[in-house]
Amino acid sequence: MQPPFKLDCTSDVSGHGVDAVSSSATSCVHATRSLRALGLKPRTLHSLRRAGVRSVRGLCELSEHELLLIPGIGHGSIVAITAALGSCSLSLDQDGNEHI
């Protein structure tokens, strides 16, 4: 299932093109991108914001395990988040470092 949006992965919020992305799947170049741009459900957005996640980069720095520790985030939210990030060739943190 594709998210109901098209996230522009070629420019930052200032409208300028972004530098080349490293080949790492967890590289997140959208530091200032709002989570709202991912088209997630309001409940998921609210849960992420309550946990202090404010940007796409902040979201990319979390692992699935860390997300599941956030109240209101379940497996359905994880599926939606990974799909939204994947549509922009981004992903959650895979190394398991604890950031919370």
Rank of each mutant, 00 (worst) to 15 (best):
T82S: 15
M1S: 08
G17E: 11
H65G: 06
K41R: 02
S55V: 07
G76R: 13
M1P: 00
S34V: 03
H65T: 11
I70W: 02
C88L: 08
D93F: 00
C28V: 07
L92I: 09
V56F: 03
A37C: 06
T44Y: 00
Q94A: 13
I73V: 09
Q94E: 13
S27Y: 15
S47W: 01
S77W: 05
R36F: 12
I100Y: 10
S34F: 05
G76N: 14
H65P: 00
G74H: 11
Q94M: 05
K41P: 00
C28F: 10
I81M: 03
I81A: 06
D19W: 09
S47R: 03
G76L: 14
A51I: 02
Q2N: 10
Q94K: 09
S63W: 08
E98P: 00
D19N: 12
V21S: 14
V79R: 15
M1T: 04
F5E: 11
P4I: 05
C28L: 07
T44G: 00
S77K: 04
S55E: 07
L92D: 06
H16I: 06
R50T: 09
A84I: 04
D95C: 13
A83L: 10
S23G: 12
S14L: 12
R50A: 11
L90K: 02
V56N: 02
L85V: 03
D93S: 13
V79C: 14
K6P: 03
V56I: 06
A83F: 01
K6C: 15
R54D: 12
L85A: 05
M1W: 04
R49P: 00
I81Y: 01
F5D: 07
G86D: 07
G86M: 00
A51S: 13
H30G: 03
G58R: 05
L35F: 06
K6S: 15
V56T: 08
T26R: 15
E64N: 08
V13C: 13
A31Y: 04
C9M: 07
M1F: 06
S47H: 00
E64S: 11
A25N: 12
C9Q: 05
V18F: 06
E66G: 05
H65I: 04
G17N: 09
S23F: 08
L35D: 04
H30W: 13
L59H: 02
R49L: 02
A80N: 05
S27P: 04
L45C: 05
S11A: 12
I81H: 01
F5W: 10
H75P: 06
E98A: 13
A31L: 04
H75F: 12
